[in-house]
């Protein structure tokens, strides 16, 4: 049954390419007429991409794509990991302990709406120009989605499950590992997924802090040199990497959360 569903889903997924194809044609029609327009044609972007990846032309960007990707991927996953290490325990505390909630929730609610961009100047003062600032900003982007979803997940465990566990012999001190943690895994997973997505979203802002390598740094450099073909190529690469990274996490979730009707 599963295989039949999947093979039926494959052609359907191809339908998702229709709108992008239309947009691509529109882009091409809009840009190919005028020579030396500000916006590159799809063809120019592809050329830029090939040059970034393989380095035939020999300018400042040639062949540098692998290094930029490695720097950004390392930053995104490293910062995401740091954010998770901080947000998961904090979220469980704030979600389950009344005093932690009373103490910390107002502060977190005020900090949450502040955009990562607004932290940029302060971060450069606190952490200096360069890699540490970039790391901090990306981690900050991932932190709040993980935190908010963890708090919500551990708070919304069905009360019935506590009753069931206690009548089966689980003591109040064992409730957390036996009930709260497994019951809130789907919600926590959603938070991790969103957090990783946000880390990708804020990578360009994070790399505005004067780092030398990274896709964001590359886009900023290209902008100053008016190389919009490289800017768009960078955007395409970030989009593709973010998409792949999310697909990976989703596949992982599907394996680990087989029991959950919304993931399995």
């Amino acid at each position: 049954m599963g295989a039949a569903l999947r093979s039926a889903a494959a052609p359907r997924r191809l339908l998702g390419l229709i709108v992008p194809a239309i947009l691509l044609v529109a882009w091409w029609l809009a840009t190919s007429r005028q020579a030396y327009g500000l916006i590159p044609t799809p063809g120019e972007v592809v050329t830029a991409l090939v040059d970034l990846a393989t380095g035939d032309e020999g300018d400042a960007f040639s062949g540098r794509l692998p290094a930029h990707i490695a720097a950004s991927v390392g930053r995104v996953y490293g910062a995401f990991l740091l954010a998770a290490l901080a947000a998961l325990p904090l979220g469980m505390l704030v979600g389950r302990l009344r005093w932690a909630h009373t103490l910390l929730d107002p502060l977190l609610q005020v900090l949450r709406p502040i955009p990562v961009t607004a932290w940029l100047p302060l971060s450069m003062i606190l952490f200096g120009l360069g890699a540490r600032s970039a790391f901090f900003l990306v981690a900050l982007g991932a932190f709040f989605p993980i935190l908010v979803n963890t708090i919500f997940a551990v708070r919304s465990v069905e009360p019935r499950l506590f009753e069931a566990a206690s009548m089966l012999g689980v003591s109040p001190t064992r409730m957390f590992p036996k009930v709260v943690l497994p019951a809130s895994l789907p919600g926590i997973f959603t938070g991790l997924r969103l957090g990783l997505g946000f880390a990708w979203v804020v990578i360009v802002v994070g790399e505005m802090t004067g780092v030398q390598t990274g896709l964001g740094a590359m886009i900023m450099d290209a902008r100053q040199l008016s190389r919009t073909d490289v800017v768009v190529a960078g955007m395409v690469v970030i989009g593709a990497l973010g998409f792949l990274s999310d697909a990976l996490v989703l596949a992982l979730g599907r394996r680990l959360l087989r029991w959950s009707p919304s993931h399995g």
């Binding site: 069905e158 019935r160 499950l161 206690s166 895994l185």
Partner: peptide
């Protein structure tokens, strides 16, 4: 609550995981 008294709920109360 204690293991000597077991409750069967109308909404089952099974552990979904």
């Amino acid at each position: 609550p204690g293991p000597g008294r077991g409750m069967v709920f109308q909404d089952y109360g099974l552990f979904p995981w």
